[in-house]
Amino acid sequence: MLNSEMPKKGTQPVDALCDESYLHVELVDGRVISVPTAWIPALEGASATERNSMEFLAASLLWPDLGAEIQVSTLLCGRDAIRKATSSQIEINADALLRSVSERLDQ
């Protein structure tokens, strides 16, 4: 996500809870949206502690320990948008892991 993007009015996350099945996000305008954790690969295999260790950014949720971030606007767009957004994160995380392993082997 580009942090310079301004969120649409009312879409800032103010609270969230992630159980085994759903991510529930409360927005500043009072709406609560829920999406299945199965749509977000980083959350699907995470522990309860990892799923709920998130930070609220202006227009997104960030899981630092999982290396995952998702925009509220993406959650509002549904499954296909979420899968597309999270698949690019998986590729980025895999590239970072490969660079890290390569750097360690070079030492």
Rank of each mutant, 00 (worst) to 15 (best):
D19L: 10
Q89Y: 12
P36R: 06
Q71E: 12
K8A: 15
I40D: 05
P41D: 09
E55L: 15
E20W: 11
L97G: 04
C77P: 06
L43V: 15
V35R: 08
L43C: 14
G10V: 04
Q107P: 00
D29P: 02
E55F: 15
P7T: 03
A81G: 15
V14H: 14
S21W: 01
L27P: 04
R104I: 04
L61F: 00
K9W: 02
I40Y: 10
A48S: 15
S102E: 15
S4M: 09
E50N: 02
D19S: 12
A16T: 03
V28K: 04
P41S: 14
L17P: 00
A85N: 09
L43S: 13
R99N: 12
I82M: 10
A68N: 12
V28R: 03
D29T: 05
A96Y: 04
K84R: 07
D106C: 09
A85Y: 10
R99S: 11
D95P: 00
E5P: 00
L62E: 08
S88Y: 11
T11C: 01
E20F: 09
P41N: 13
L27M: 10
I90E: 09
E55P: 11
S88M: 11
M54D: 00
E44M: 04
A46H: 03
H24T: 04
S21I: 00
S102F: 13
T11A: 01
P41M: 08
Y22W: 00
V32H: 07
L17Y: 09
N3G: 03
T74A: 09
E91Q: 13
G45V: 07
A81S: 15
S34G: 15
N93E: 10
E91M: 13
N93P: 10
S34I: 12
Q89M: 14
G45Q: 12
W39I: 05
W63D: 00
M54P: 00
F56S: 12
L105W: 04
P36K: 08
A94D: 06
A96L: 06
S87Q: 12
Q89N: 07
E44V: 02
N93V: 10
M1C: 14
D65Q: 06
Q12M: 11
K9G: 01
T11V: 02
M6H: 15
K8C: 11
L27G: 05
D106I: 08
I40V: 14
D19Y: 11
L57P: 01
G10N: 05
M54C: 04
D15F: 03
I33G: 04
E55S: 14
L105N: 03
S34Y: 11
F56V: 11
P13F: 05
E103R: 05
E44N: 08
T86N: 06
H24N: 07
P41K: 13
L66C: 04
S73D: 10
I40Q: 09
Q71A: 14
L23K: 01
I40M: 13
A48T: 13
P7K: 06
Q107L: 04
D80E: 12
E50K: 03
R79H: 12
K9E: 05
Q107T: 02
A46T: 03
A59P: 09
P36G: 06
T37A: 06
V25S: 02
A68M: 14
P36D: 06
G30N: 07
